[in-house]
């Protein structure tokens, strides 16, 4: 695994937990430039968009997670919740 990618992912998660969703999106977009195939990245991105109440973008991100990993439980749950809201 790329250390820089991991650090950005962790920082993104930190920002999500701090309710700084805009900042989370910025760092996760930087991480995306390193690895576009990581489901956790898109799951966190989906969470950040969900936190911002940007439902369309959140749904797109969770769908991307499920393309990369159809068994991703968290993405499945969040997507279902967003669709049914």
């Amino acid at each position: 695994m790329n250390q820089e990618f991991d650090d950005l992912l962790e920082l993104g998660n930190f920002y999500i937990l701090s309710q700084e969703f805009g900042e989370a999106i910025k760092v996760l977009k930087m991480a995306e430039k390193i690895d576009r195939m990581n489901p956790e990245l898109y799951n966190n991105l989906g969470m950040a968009y969900e936190g911002l109440s940007e439902k369309d973008k959140a749904r797109d991100s969770f769908r991307l997670v499920l393309k990369l990993n159809p068994n991703h439980k968290s993405a499945q749950e969040h997507l279902t919740r967003l669709i049914e809201e």
Binding site: N13, L17, Q19, F21, G22, N44, G51, L52, S53, E54
Partner: peptide, 23 residues
Amino acid sequence: STDFKEEIIVGPGGDDEVISGDV
């Protein structure tokens, strides 16, 4: 992993701050 719980502030006061993503 991270998840959300929804908080509803009913009848918010003047000191309540509005943050990004609030509805």
